[in-house]
């Protein structure tokens, strides 16, 4: 009988039941899911059934987590993503959300850089928790990412990025993400990295403040290999701040542009 067990093909004996399968394969499982429904009682299995056996609090093995993730992706996506490295400059509202989205996708490696620590005002939009206040953002984000996907390789740089260290830190990535807060830093990375490494696509952001229309946030291609997400105009300023919904939209658009570049090599 051909079934899927934890997203992998499994040959079950004819007449096998759900609990017998559990007892044979993972007797310590305390959550048993059959075709998407958590089961409290035993049930007969049929060809094509999908069974998921979970022990609460247990981290899946690397192979198991990979199989689980790959099953959710379009065929071919996971292999591309798993073999890729992405750099993220700035781990604030954009960078922290982008890192989490890519980790959930099973990205192979993330190179993360930010000199800053988690502050209370960050919590309105950045992917940190109140018990992480005062921690370096690199360390706090790494801890959060490891709770989501412990198998993503992480390279952390708790440094202020400059024209001198940008390329040495990020020169090995497949795609570079600009997630800075200040406009002059955005210009700095565009003038430095895009010139030194024009072969590496750069996904930047500009214009995502406030709570204006979400539909004005788009992707604009500038130059040979620069893709800018945002409405290009709405700057963060007193009285018109950065807020989780619109920042999140922009961050996930950046993550999606990264994904398209990795999988398809283009964004159009």
């Amino acid at each position: 009988m051909n079934i899927r067990l934890n997203e992998r093909p499994y040959d079950a004996s004819p007449g096998a039941t759900l609990f017998a399968l559990r007892d044979a394969v993972k007797p310590d499982a305390d959550v048993v899911i059959l075709n998407g429904a958590a089961m409290r009682g035993d049930a007969s299995l049929a060809d094509g059934d999908e069974v998921c056996l979970i022990r609460r609090g247990e981290t899946p093995s690397a192979d198991e987590l990979e199989a689980l993730m790959a099953a959710r992706h379009t065929p071919g996506v996971h292999a591309r993503v798993k073999g890729a490295a992405v750099g993220i400059a700035g781990l604030g509202g954009l960078g922290s959300a982008i890192a989490i989205a890519l980790a959930r996708m099973g990205i192979g490696k993330l190179i993360l850089a930010d000199f800053d620590v988690v502050e209370p005002s960050n919590l309105n939009r950045q992917q940190y928790f109140v018990d992480q206040l005062g921690l370096l953002k690199t360390d706090a984000l790494a801890a959060n990412l490891r709770r989501i996907n412990p198998y993503v390789a992480l390279e952390l740089h708790a440094v202020r990025l400059t024209p001198d260290n940008l390329t040495p830190i990020f020169g090995s990535v497949n795609v570079m993400v600009e997630a800075f807060d200040r406009a002059d830093q955005k210009v700095m990375i565009l003038q430095t990295f895009a010139v030194n490494r024009p072969d590496i696509p750069l996904v930047a952001a500009s214009g995502l403040a406030g709570f204006g229309s979400e539909t004005t946030i788009g992707v604009t291609s500038i130059g040979r290999n620069i893709h800018v997400v945002g409405d290009l105009e709405t700057a963060a300023r007193p009285g018109w701040g950065l807020m989780a919904p619109r920042v999140g939209i922009a961050a996930h658009m950046q993550a999606n542009v990264v994904l398209r570049l990795l999988v398809e090599g283009r964004t159009t």
Binding site: G90, G92, G93, L94, G95, A179, F180, D181, R182, A183, K186, V187, L190, Q191, A194, V195, A204, A205, S206, G207, L208, A209, I222, G223, V228, G230, L232, E233, T234, A235, A236, R237, L242, V247
Partner: peptide
């Protein structure tokens, strides 16, 4: 990306963009 001091030649294209704060 280039600098303001870059000397232009016939047929060159120049894009002018100003990133805004926020991230």
């Amino acid at each position: 990306p280039s600098t303001p001091e870059r000397m232009l030649r016939d047929g060159d294209s120049v894009q002018v963009f100003s990133p805004v704060a926020g991230g």
